[in-house]
Design a binder for these strands. Structure first.
Lengths: 198, 198
DNA sequence: CCTACCGATCGGTAGG
DNA sequence: CCTACCGATCGGTAGG
């Protein structure tokens, strides 16, 4: 196989994965059939398997690639020497920006990961709990320094934060007047400062 | 069929629906088979159909019963003559209390409604957009009276609110130290006032 | 509530 | 990338 064949294969594989992401988002992983996917690509179902090993391999690559992006973004934020409220703000903005780069894959990451088989599901959930706990640490730091209220339950705070972030791909219209940067800003403002006028 | 038979049937049908809710929540509607459900109930798959008409009928009853509960709760709140911030707070608490009464059905309502067929899906989405818009009206009232910031995008605000509320069944442990009333209080506080110390 | 069964569809393979 | 096909499983029905 020549280099250009390898590149062609890679790009075709990428096409398959991207179309699959759209399909999985729209119908859900379990209800999306490989025949549906093939039809979207204009080929026969059996032909998919010269590009990918299995249906689940596609789901795995979508979920774990997104997880890696989120992790990278948070690591950058953790390096910063800024107050906890600023760190939380930057973490939120980073998370939103990673999502905005691929809203379809983000929706699959959030809604369909439960269809991963073991041991992948376990690995995925470990990555997620680690990510959540690192946000929780930022919130706890903010409570310790007096920036954040000490009256709020930390688990509730971090899960509420996460819920807000993770549903964004379900309603955000990338063609709308509000761009991802402004979206991140406003989301961070609402969660940190609330709706009420200061 | 005697009256007591009717009552027995009704209660058995309820058992089927409740078990189905657990199964749909755990595996997702599409991945949950009627044979799985039958096994959980200790009967054969074909026997399910003496209690229910179809798999989707179960999903419909779960989704629309929850929708009716949410609607009822919001109507009570809308009658109140209180400031918008108070109304929003009470709307949040009401929503949480409806969910807390049946966390399993709430999770199905949120995650599996997309598997409804037409025309039920359309009806469901209309109910949901109506509910969301009524919350949006409360937020807009609050902006008009000066209780809420006028800098925030209203769609973002209401969708963030909804995301936070609707993911609660995914992480809330009803045996935890925080009870539904306190949960509603804290969630309302976080969304209205933010994490930051006043 | 059961046995026996239906047609449709599923993910995936063999072989080219 | 295709034709031809596999065993497994799906929601649901007939008849008792």
């Amino acid at each position: 196989m020549s280099m250009s064949d390898a590149i062609a294969n890679l790009s075709r594989k990428e096409q398959v994965i991207r179309k699959a992401a759209e399909l999985f988002k729209d119908k859900g992983y379990a209800a999306a059939s490989m025949r549906d996917l093939a039809q979207l690509l204009g080929i026969e179902a059996a032909s998919l398997y010269s590009h990918i090993k299995s249906k689940e391999e596609i789901l795995r690559s979508l979920c774990f690639d997104m997880a890696a992006e989120f992790r990278k973004s948070l690591e950058e934020v953790e390096k910063q020497h800024v107050p906890a409220s600023e760190k939380l703000r930057n973490g939120i903005i980073g998370h939103i920006q990673v999502m905005a780069k691929d809203l379809t894959a983000s929706a699959v990451f959030m809604n369909e990961h439960r269809h991963l088989s073991e041991p992948y599901l376990r690995d995925f959930l470990l990555l997620r709990i680690n990510y959540i706990n690192r946000f929780k640490t930022i919130i706890e730091d903010g409570v310790r320094t007096g920036e954040f209220k000490n009256t709020i339950d930390k688990k509730l705070a971090v899960m509420t934060l996460f819920s807000s972030l993770n549903w964004m791909p379900m309603w955000y219209d990338p063609d709308s007047s509000i761009d991802p940067q402004a979206l991140g800003d406003q989301l961070a403002d609402m969660l940190v400062n609330g709706l009420k006028k200061a």
